[in-house]
Design a protein around this nucleic acid. Structure first.
Lengths: 215, 215
DNA sequence: CAGCATATTCAACAAGCGTTGAATTATCAA
DNA sequence: TTGATAATTCAACGCTTGTTGAATATGCTG
C-alpha cells in the first residue's frame, strides 16, 4: 500500500463525506453516518484523516487542484485563440463556467456533490471567507484580470461587485436546491447545469457591460 | 401576560437563535449556546417553542410577513406610479431589493441576521426547497409576473432562469460572507448593502433584457 | 391579601457525539 | 513462510446533546 495510492476504503470515506457534507453541512453530519455510508468502522475515518475538521478539509481540497487547472486552461485557451484584442466578456465567463458543466457531464456524481459543497462553503459566513480564499482567490483574480482587459473603462470597484453577482448566481446553481424546479412549475431543472450556464453567460455578460461601461 | 405580547426573554431567545443559526446553520448551534446568549435556562427555549426544529421555524417565520408586506408594497407603489405601461425592469428589481436595504439601515442588527438566515436556508439543498416555497413563492411569483409584463417577448423558461440569477446574487449578498472584502482588497464591503444593490440593479436588469429579449 | 396561571429554573435522563488505545486482519517484501 | 508494516475493527471513554417532569418564581385577578 503505497502512499500515493490511497486505499479504496479511504476514497469511499471521502466520497460519502463529500455527499453528506454538501447536503447537510459540516455540523449536520456525524462520523458514524459517514462510516456507515462507506461501509467501514467509525474509527477508520480518524485513522486516515485525523479529526473531523481535517476530514472536512481533505474533502474540500481533494478536487480543488484539478478544478482550478481545468478552469485556468479554459481561460488560457480562449486567450490564445482571441489574438491581440483579447477574449470578449462572454468568452471569459464561458471559460469560467463551462468546465463546471463538463465535470457534471462525465456522469461522476462525486463532482456534482463536490460543487454543491463549494456552494455550501462559499455561502457560509462562518466557513466562506477562510476556506475559499486560500484555494480559489488566485484563479478568480486571474479571471478578473482578464475581465478588466476586456472592459478597459471599468472601475475596479464595479468590476468586483459584478464578479460578486456572477459568483452568487453560480453558487446558487451549484447548490442544486431544487427551488427553481418548484418555482417554474417544472420547466426549469436545478440539475440541468447546461441550461443554467446557457442563461447565465449572456445574463452576466450583459450585466458586466452595463455596469462596467462597455459600449 | 397576554398571548399577543410575548415575554422579553422569549424574544431574546429568538434574537440569539436568529444570529447563531445564520452564522453556523441549524446543526451548528446548540440550545445551550442560544440559552446562554439569551441569559436564560436551556429549558426555556423548549417551553416556549417546543423542539429545536420548531424554534428554527419560529425564527424563520417571525419576520417573514413584515418582509413580504414591505416588498409587495414597494412593488405596488412602482406599479401605481408607472401608469398604463407598467414599471420598467429596473423599477421592478428595485422594488424587489431596496426594502432589504431599508431593513438594514434602521440599524436593527436583527434584520441583518434574519436576512443572513434566509441566505443560509435558500442556498441549502436540505432546507431550501421545503422552507422557502411556503413563505416566499407567492411574493416571488408576483414579481415574476410584473417582469413578464415588462418583457412581453420573454419565454417563461428564460424568465425563471433570469430570476434564478438574480436570486443567487441576492442570496450571496445577504449571506455577508466577507469574501468580496478580501477579494477586492477592501474596496468593496459585504456589509454595504446599498453599494451591493446599486450594482445589482443595473447588472441584473441588463441581464433580463439581454436574455428575455427587450430591445 | 389569596389564588392561579404563566414563566422560569433545576436536575436529570438516555442517546449520540468525536476520539483513542488496543486488538485484529490484510498486504507484501524478503 | 515469516516478519514487518499498514489497514481496519473493536471496545470503550468522557462529554455534550435535546428533551422532560418536577420545583420554584413571577405577575395578574379578584
Amino acid at each position: 500500500m503505497s502512499r500515493k495510492t490511497p486505499s479504496a476504503k479511504s476514497e469511499r470515506i471521502l466520497d460519502v463525506a463529500e455527499e453528506l457534507f454538501a447536503l447537510r453541512g459540516y455540523d449536520g453530519v456525524t462520523l458514524r453516518q459517514i462510516a456507515n455510508g462507506a461501509g467501514v468502522d467509525v474509527a477508520l475515518a480518524s485513522y486516515h484523516f485525523g479529526k473531523k475538521i481535517d476530514l472536512f478539509n481533505a474533502v474540500f481540497q481533494r478536487r480543488a487542484v484539478e478544478l482550478n487547472e481545468s478552469r485556468l486552461s479554459a481561460l488560457r485557451a480562449c486567450q490564445d485563440s482571441s489574438g491581440k484584442a483579447g477574449p470578449s466578456v462572454e468568452q471569459i465567463i464561458e471559460a469560467f463556467l463551462r468546465p463546471l458543466e463538463i465535470a457534471q457531464e462525465t456522469g461522476d456524481k462525486g463532482w456534482t456533490n463536490y460543487l454543491a459543497l463549494i456552494a455550501y462553503i462559499n455561502n457560509s459566513p462562518y466557513w466562506g471567507k477562510r476556506m475559499m480564499s486560500k484555494l480559489f482567490d488566485k484563479l478568480v483574480l486571474e479571471f478578473i484580470d482578464a475581465l478588466r482587459k476586456a472592459l478597459p473603462d471599468a472601475r475596479d470597484e464595479d468590476l468586483f461587485w459584478c464578479y460578486h453577482n456572477l459568483s452568487g448566481a453560480l453558487t446558487l446553481t451549484l447548490a442544486q436546491t431544487g427551488r427553481i424546479d418548484t418555482l417554474s412549475g417544472g420547466s426549469c431543472r436545478s440539475s440541468d447545469f447546461r441550461a443554467a450556464y446557457d442563461h447565465m453567460i449572456p445574463f452576466t455578460a450583459a450585466g458586466f457591460r452595463q455596469v462596467c461601461g462597455g459600449q
